[in-house]
């Protein structure tokens, strides 16, 4: 089954420049087209493209299967990458605390339910898209704003100490693989 993404993923300027396009197949066989600039935001995909030796000539004839990401998440990821493909490269942030405001477009894109967001962040982690990872983490982190520990336990599905103990007991009581 092939699904066309809802947003135009190729921008006018790029069409004029005759861009290189790639095809990606999600785990549930949805097919997506993504431009070269956009796909470079995913370190995993770009490494794959480089290793497979895909070129402008053969890219569309050789769809890239991504078995760990379903169509729904891939659609969001393609939209995100196309939106941010011309962003300036950001410096490495490892040694200081970042403060940034999530752009409204991205906040809208990531206004999805918790299960979807959870799956999206796993997909983003797998595809190694740093900016989307930052934004997803910001959305998840912001859920904690002004909440009590009791509220946070519910928001983030954190078991109580008693539940953790019970889980641990049941794990140790259950027979191992050898019976």
């Amino acid at each position: 089954m092939s699904v066309e993404p809802e947003v135009p993923i190729v921008q006018v300027e790029e069409v004029r420049e005759n861009p290189v396009l790639y095809k990606i197949i999600s785990s549930d066989n949805h097919v997506f087209t993504i431009s070269e600039h956009a796909v470079k935001l995913s370190k995993t995909l770009w490494d794959l493209i480089t290793n497979l030796g895909l070129t402008a000539e053969n890219a569309l004839d050789n769809p890239i299967p991504v078995e760990n990401v379903n169509g729904k998440n891939m659609e969001t990821i393609v939209q995100f990458c196309e939106r941010h493909k011309y962003d300036e490269e950001e410096p490495e942030y490892t040694n200081y605390i970042r403060e940034f405001v999530l752009p409204e477009w991205d906040r809208q894109l990531l206004s999805i339910d918790n299960e979807e967001l959870f799956q999206l962040i796993l997909a983003t982690n797998y595809l190694d898209i740093q900016k989307l990872m930052d934004y997803c983490c910001r959305v998840i982190g912001d859920m904690a704003k002004d909440k009590t520990p009791e509220e946070l336990r519910i928001i983030y599905g954190i078991p109580t100490d008693a539940e953790d103990d019970a889980l641990e007991r049941s794990a140790s009581d259950s027979p191992g693989p050898s019976g």
């Binding site: 970042r98 918790n114 959870f118 983490c137 998840i140 982190g141 904690a144 599905g157 078991p159």
Partner: peptide, 26 residues
């Protein structure tokens, strides 16, 4: 037993990044 975003099921590096995005009070 809980609905919500299962933060403890996130990969370690992702969890660490989520925590680093929170305000220190949170």
């Amino acid at each position: 037993t809980h609905k919500g975003l299962p933060i403890l099921r996130l990969p370690n590096l992702v969890l660490k990044e989520v925590l680093s995005m929170m305000s220190p009070l949170d």
